[in-house]
Computed example of a mutant assay.
Amino acid sequence: MDEQSVRAALEHYIRHSAAGDEDRASEIYHEDAVLEFPQSGERFEGVANFREWRREYPAQVDLEIVRVRGRDDFWVVEVRARYDGGPWMYGPAVYEFRGDRVSRETIYVGEAWEAPGWRARWRAAP
């Protein structure tokens, strides 16, 4: 896999999931893919299991890709997510590929915070 292919796969997921088409969105996964949320301790084995709860998700989720980094079959994607138009949350999602599809996805999400003023003099310009 290369960065362009990874980005294309994730944009496919985002586009179809936002349209409510979880079948098409889930095409990026192998049938035996694993999805993990370390913060909640959840692990879902098999795309059929997490595709179904994603169909029932009780909020509108907006996702944006910030940055893609990695090589071969291991990629870290910085993402922004918000729920029902709320504040953006940030985190990395770790993707392991087998061939051209995702075999494991590990998602971390955290709230944004205001940068403290005391360290401003050392910050790089945006």
Rank of each mutant, 00 (worst) to 15 (best):
M1H: 00
M1T: 03
E3H: 00
E3A: 04
Q4H: 13
Q4E: 15
S5I: 10
R7Q: 10
A8K: 07
A8W: 05
A9S: 08
L10K: 04
E11A: 02
E11D: 10
H12T: 12
Y13A: 01
I14P: 00
H16I: 07
H16C: 06
S17K: 10
S17E: 14
S17M: 12
A19R: 03
A19E: 05
A19K: 02
G20V: 13
D21E: 14
E22I: 11
E22D: 04
E22W: 05
R24D: 12
R24S: 15
A25D: 02
A25Y: 03
A25C: 02
S26N: 02
E27W: 05
I28V: 12
Y29C: 04
D32E: 13
A33S: 08
A33K: 03
V34P: 01
V34D: 05
V34T: 09
E36T: 11
F37W: 14
P38D: 03
P38A: 00
Q39E: 15
S40H: 10
S40Q: 11
G41Q: 05
E42D: 04
F44M: 07
E45H: 07
G46R: 02
G46Y: 04
G46W: 08
V47Q: 02
A48L: 09
F50I: 09
R51L: 12
R51W: 11
E52W: 03
W53Y: 09
W53T: 06
R54N: 05
R55S: 11
E56G: 08
A59H: 13
A59M: 15
Q60T: 15
V61I: 15
V61Q: 04
E64R: 14
R67V: 14
R67D: 15
R67G: 06
V68Q: 02
V68D: 07
R69K: 02
R69A: 13
R71Y: 03
D72L: 10
D72G: 12
D73S: 03
F74T: 00
V76S: 06
E78S: 10
E78K: 01
E78C: 07
V79Y: 08
R80G: 09
A81F: 08
Y83S: 14
D84V: 08
G85H: 02
G85M: 12
G86R: 04
G86N: 06
W88G: 01
W88I: 10
Y90W: 13
P92G: 11
P92V: 11
A93I: 09
Y95W: 15
Y95S: 07
Y95Q: 10
G99N: 00
D100Y: 04
D100A: 13
R101S: 04
V102E: 11
V102D: 10
S103M: 12
T106C: 08
Y108G: 01
Y108D: 05
Y108S: 03
V109C: 06
G110T: 14
G110Q: 12
E111F: 13
E111M: 12
E114L: 12
E114A: 10
P116S: 03
P116H: 02
W118V: 07
W118D: 08
R119H: 09
A120I: 00
R121L: 11
R121P: 11
R121M: 09
W122P: 00
W122C: 00
R123Q: 14
A124R: 00
A124N: 02
A125Y: 08
A125S: 13
A125G: 05
P126G: 15
P126C: 09
P126I: 08
